[in-house]
């Protein structure tokens, strides 16, 4: 039974390896430095860094209380809330972008108020790109954080209370340190997802160089005009993704 399994597994492994090998084969190593420091590439790299870090911060700020409520409180509609919070995991990102447009665009029911009251416009801005990335990235953080909150034995918190700790002290000195590894893993996953975000970003924030054109968008656009730049940028994304996998291997390895 093992031999056919090995043969099929090899074919499957090749399916993952060959495209990466092909990509490496097409990198023009001689001009790699110049390709990565070209205007579009530099803008894309910087913008992607800003947007993905911003989206990660927003995901943590919003995802932490959400994960806490989902893990620790019992109320009617909790499953529904979890479903909604995790929906972007399976929702096609383009649809997410369309949904964001209908709410936060200048004519959307939230966007119109934002523009009217604060003069804020999210579409076609860097903030909009960040928002689109947050929309798809936050579920990754919520998922990891909720699992973290569920996995700790709440009797440790009882022990802290019995020693005289106030609620804030319990969270700061017991709960938080115990879930910190889960939170870190969730943040890294959310960041990696935000970095690679394409569909929701291009739909909601558009494709404006230097403002909303993040790395994946730049790759797509440059593929026609400057394939070497597109491949150099792809290489960056591959290296970052591999780095995330290596950093997280202890959590996935059995």
């Amino acid at each position: 039974m093992n031999r056919p399994a090995v043969a099929l597994a090899s074919a499957a492994a090749l399916f993952f390896v060959l495209p990466l090998a092909g990509l490496l084969g097409r990198v023009s190593w001689g001009t790699l430095g110049a390709d990565l420091s070209s205007g579009a590439a530099r803008d894309g790299l910087w913008l992607s860094l800003v947007c993905s870090v911003g989206a990660t911060v927003l995901s943590v700020i919003g995802g932490l209380p959400l994960a806490w409520v989902l893990a620790r409180m019992r109320f009617p509609g909790r499953s529904l809330l979890r479903g909604l919070a995790l929906l972007p995991l399976v929702l096609p990102p383009v649809v997410g972008g369309v949904a964001l447009l209908s709410a936060f665009a200048r004519r959307g029911f939230v966007g119109a108020r934002l523009y009217e009251w604060f003069g804020v416009q999210l579409t076609f801005t860097t903030a909009g790109a960040m928002l689109a990335e947050t929309f798809v990235a936050m579920p990754f953080f919520v998922l990891a954080a909720e699992a973290g909150f569920r996995s700790i034995d709440t009797r440790y918190e009882d022990a802290a209370v019995s020693l005289g700790a106030r609620p804030f002290t319990v969270v700061r000195r017991v709960t938080f340190p115990m879930v910190a590894p889960s939170l870190a893993a969730g943040a890294v996953l959310a960041w990696a997802r935000a970095l690679g975000e394409f569909g929701a970003t291009i739909t909601f924030a558009g494709n404006i160089a230097g403002r909303t054109q993040t790395l994946p968008l730049a790759v797509y656009l440059q593929l026609e005009s400057h394939p070497d730049v597109a491949i150099a940028l792809s290489l960056v994304l591959v290296v970052v993704s591999l780095g995330v996998i290596v950093a997280m291997r202890d959590r996935w390895a059995v």
Binding site: R155, A160, L163, V174, M178
Partner: peptide, 26 residues
């Protein structure tokens, strides 16, 4: 009131001394 729990529930991220000091710090 001081309580010793079943399976002790020592905080896994704190050293023995930090565990004992926890109540005093609180």
């Amino acid at each position: 009131v001081g309580m010793m729990f079943q399976d002790y529930l020592l905080f896994p991220h704190l050293s023995a001394a930090e565990n004992v000091a926890f109540g005093l710090r609180c």
